[in-house]
Structure formats: structure tokens, C-alpha cells
């Protein structure tokens, strides 16, 4: 919004377009945690095939 006032008592106001965000480039550094990564060999509730499949998926 532009508001104009002059020394003779006149003036006007008008809306103004502003620059808009367009392109973004981003570089990140951080940590990734995978706490449920694999099923341990001692915990064999599921049959071997299921454990293998799950571990393959979570690899």
C-alpha cells in the first residue's frame, strides 16, 4: 500500500504488487534415525520367512 501526501494538502493511496517468492534452493545437513531397523535373531516370534521379509523391507 502506497500513501502519498503532498505539501498542498492533496494525496492518494494505491495498492502495489510486491515481489513473490519463486525459486528455492536448499542444502541440509543432519541426522537420520532408524530405531526399528531390523528384527534381532533372539526375537523370533515370527517364522524365519516373515522376519527375513520384514528385515529386507526395513533394510
Amino acid at each position: 500500500m502506497q500513501i502519498n501526501k503532498n505539501s498542498e494538502g492533496g494525496g492518494f493511496y494505491k495498492a502495489m504488487m510486491l515481489p513473490t517468492p519463486a525459486h528455492f534452493v536448499q542444502l541440509n545437513i543432519g541426522m537420520m534415525l532408524r530405531p526399528f531397523n531390523t528384527i534381532r535373531p533372539g526375537e523370533m516370534k515370527y517364522d524365519a520367512e516373515t522376519v527375513k521379509r520384514a528385515n529386507e523391507k526395513n533394510k
Partner: peptide, 27 residues
């Protein structure tokens, strides 16, 4: 085991930096 099989979750926390280019054509 149920959790391990059902929740193959991945958490990521990252510090980000970068730059933005603005569209100045209409302004």
C-alpha cells in the same frame, strides 16, 4: 517384535540453509 515389524519408521532432523529467488516482474 510387533513394533519392529509394523513400524519401520525413519526420523530425520536437519539444519537447513539455502537461498530464495524472488519473482520481481509484476512489482
Amino acid at each position: 517384535q510387533y513394533l519392529r515389524v509394523r513400524l519401520p519408521v525413519v526420523f530425520k532432523f536437519q539444519v537447513a540453509s539455502g537461498f530464495a529467488l524472488m519473482n520481481n516482474n509484476q512489482s
